[in-house]
Amino acid sequence: MSNVLGIKNLHISVQGKPIIKGLNLSVQQGEIHALMGPNGSGKSTLAKGLMGHPLYEVDSGEVIFDGVDVLELEPNERAKLGLFLAFQYPTAIPGVSLANFLRLAVSAVRGKGVNGSEKDGLIPMREFRRELREKMQQLGVDDSFARRYLNDGFSGGEMKRAEILQLAMLEPKIAILDETDSGLDIDAVRIVGESVSQLIGPDLGVLIITHYPRLLDYIRPQFVHILLDGRVVESGGWELTQVLEAEGYDPIREKHGIDE
């Protein structure tokens, strides 16, 4: 099976400053990867760069998704291929209800309505509502969520749950979770962690980006990578998280000759 997400020797800079400096990584459907690194190691830059944020400049390298070079593609085209980013800080869109937005997003990603699309190219309302209700129940999200304006006035926990709900609805092949546990209290991390673990299956590959292993108690990765100074310096299994927990990043920094 070919890699769904294959990253080779990737270099990304932000406002002229190199942040990602030759990163290699591959993720397949059904796999769970954790990418761990301290603040400033380039985690969020990688996440936004992979999704195609215009301010994150890819200087060289390649990102192949499902056999397609995605670096020239717009963010929406990447989404359509099956790439998803759960944002660390989701943006509020006042005046736009979560349900209204999600119907457009689902329709755009699927290309057309499933059981005979309506002429506006949107997934039929009834079908959408049924699906949304199912997913909301599955994830234990309150019904009122659908009518609220997207991320507007949401608490930290609500925002992250809204991200996971979007993940569930858009059914990507690969989901990048960018610091999905940040800013959450222990209960919220548990709720989000359990939600994500419900979605895990053979069709979903997950790349969990975090500097803190709390979320991994709920979603156990098969692959763990350490990101330091814009490169993956160590890859291994679960045991790597234990090493980190016990010793922190310093021994790894030392080993690879990286200054803090």
Partner: peptide, 16 residues
């Protein structure tokens, strides 16, 4: 960017 990352083309994102 947020809306486009969910699959909406620029014009749709702007419209929303």
């Amino acid at each position: 960017f947020y809306l486009m990352s969910r699959g909406l083309p620029y014009t749709e994102a702007e419209k929303l």
